[in-house]
Design a protein around this nucleic acid. Structure first.
Lengths: 113, 113
DNA sequence: ATCATCTGTTAGCGGTGACTAACGTTAGCG
DNA sequence: CGCTAACGTTAGTCACCGCTAACAGATGAT
């Protein structure tokens, strides 16, 4: 379970949809598969990728497997993005101050709020 | 520039490193390429992907092209992750309350703080 | 104009990943 | 035990992606 695994997992659109679904409610594999037009097998493989990336967790109820999003799996990604965001704002600010920035078409510098 | 584009762009490890570098400081294509063991061309292609995904911005200085991270490009991703995070916490909490959760090995529920 | 520097574009190769169909495992009921 | 329901695993196909080498364009100095 690395940030690399998580980001690779999220690069595929269907897996993002799956993650949204199981972030809202715990669902069985069959219920998840029912929301897509591809085969059950394809969904099963996607679920395995997400699980291995630490983004969701599975429990069994009889023959059913229930999946829900795992918040911890997203923590590293949020941190990664926060660092990027903060660094990018800082750099943009510095460039403005040294008059090196904003000469490429009036790019707006978002407020850090 | 969609969230899909951005997440696909970030699925590749070298592109993540590139984004980190240009979040810290504005760099030329050559400087960026110098930080890697692959060809200049490969880096040029990565820069194109990141630019098209709206994650960085380019300006010219003579023959040089200078790149820096574009904070706005990360906004959608942060929002996506925030939604996932909030939803996942909420779902986990609900499952605890209905005694349906945490029966899969003592999965800890992070605080929403 | 020529030359040096910088760097993007293109085409082809080999590896990867999402799909499917077929096969296999687990749980529970009668 | 046999059967059903639920769903994972495997292997092959084909589209996609990151790499390289070759080619090409832009900038500025002389």
């Amino acid at each position: 379970m690395t940030d690399d695994d998580a980001l690779r997992a999220l690069a595929e659109p269907r897996r993002r949809v799956i993650l949204r679904l199981v972030a809202r409610d715990e669902l069985s594999a069959g219920e998840i598969a029912g929301a897509f037009e591809v085969s059950r097998t394809a969904i099963s493989q996607h679920l395995t990728v997400l699980k291995n990336a630490g983004l969701l967790t599975e429990r069994r109820a009889g023959t059913r497997r229930l999946y829900r999003a795992r918040p911890e799996g997203l923590a590293g990604l949020r941190e990664f993005l926060d660092d990027m965001w903060a660094g990018a704002l800082d750099t943009a600010k510095r460039l403005v101050e040294t008059d090196r920035g904003l000469s490429d078409g009036g790019e707006k510098v978002p407020h850090a709020g």
